[in-house]
Each structure stands twice: as structure tokens, then as C-alpha cells.
């Protein structure tokens, strides 16, 4: 574990003086279930990307062609570092393309 700083080295009042450092704080380590997106059935509607409260659905510039030969320019994926496993994305996906699976399985 990294060495934690002394009280003397901390800005007073718990004020965070280096903006954007929440990226260093991985908040997704306590989830039980994680969403798995089925790239075949996903229609790229972006609803999961909107509803995720932790911005953990990521839109990737990754092309995908389905078995029925439908081409998509983007794919959606889950950032496991920040996904807390709430399942909102799976609940809201209109085509049920997201399945919540136990972390150990995923």
C-alpha cells in the first residue's frame, strides 16, 4: 500500500486543490454484479451511456458488424474501475442487451 501523507502535507479543510483527481480514486471495487453488453443485440441507442450515474458506460470508436451484417461505427463497453454494479443500464436498455453477471463470472 502507498504511504499516506501526514496531516501537515494536506490542504486544510479537506479541500481538494488538484482538480480532476477523482480519476485516481477507483470506486468500482465493491460491486457484486457487472453489466455485460451483448454487441449483437445492442442497437447503439446510447440510453445506457446516458443513465449510468457513474459515467461507467464508455462509447468506443470500435466498429462492429453483426452476424446479420449490420455495421456499427461505435461499441459500448463498461469501465470496471468505476461501475458500481447498480444495474440501471440493464434495467433501462430497451432491447435487453445488457445482462448483469456476477463479477467472478465476468
Amino acid at each position: 500500500m502507498e504511504k499516506l501523507v501526514s496531516y501537515k502535507e494536506m490542504a486544510p479543510g479537506g479541500i481538494v486543490v488538484n482538480p480532476g483527481n477523482s480519476l485516481e480514486y477507483k470506486t468500482g471495487d465493491w460491486k457484486v454484479l457487472i453489466p455485460v453488453i451483448n454487441q449483437e443485440t445492442c442497437t447503439r441507442c446510447r440510453i445506457c451511456w446516458y443513465v449510468c450515474p457513474d459515467n461507467a458506460i464508455v462509447e468506443l470508436d470500435k466498429e462492429y458488424t453483426t452476424k446479420k451484417n449490420r455495421k456499427y461505427k461505435v461499441s459500448y463497453d463498461v469501465n470496471a474501475d468505476f461501475c458500481k454494479g447498480c444495474g440501471m443500464c440493464a434495467q433501462e436498455c430497451p432491447v435487453k442487451a445488457i445482462e448483469m453477471v456476477p463479477v467472478e463470472v465476468a
Binding site: 479537506g14 479541500i15 486543490v17
Partner: peptide
């Protein structure tokens, strides 16, 4: 010069702020 005020502070840090 952005700062965050009033953030949550986990057990590894809260005590030090109180000691400050």
C-alpha cells in the same frame, strides 16, 4: 484555479483533517 470543497473523506484521511 478550481478546487473541490466539501468532499467526502474516507477513514484514512478524516482523522488528519480533524487533527489539523
Amino acid at each position: 484555479k478550481p478546487v473541490s470543497i466539501g468532499s467526502i473523506t474516507p477513514p484514512e484521511y478524516y482523522y488528519e483533517f480533524k487533527y489539523q
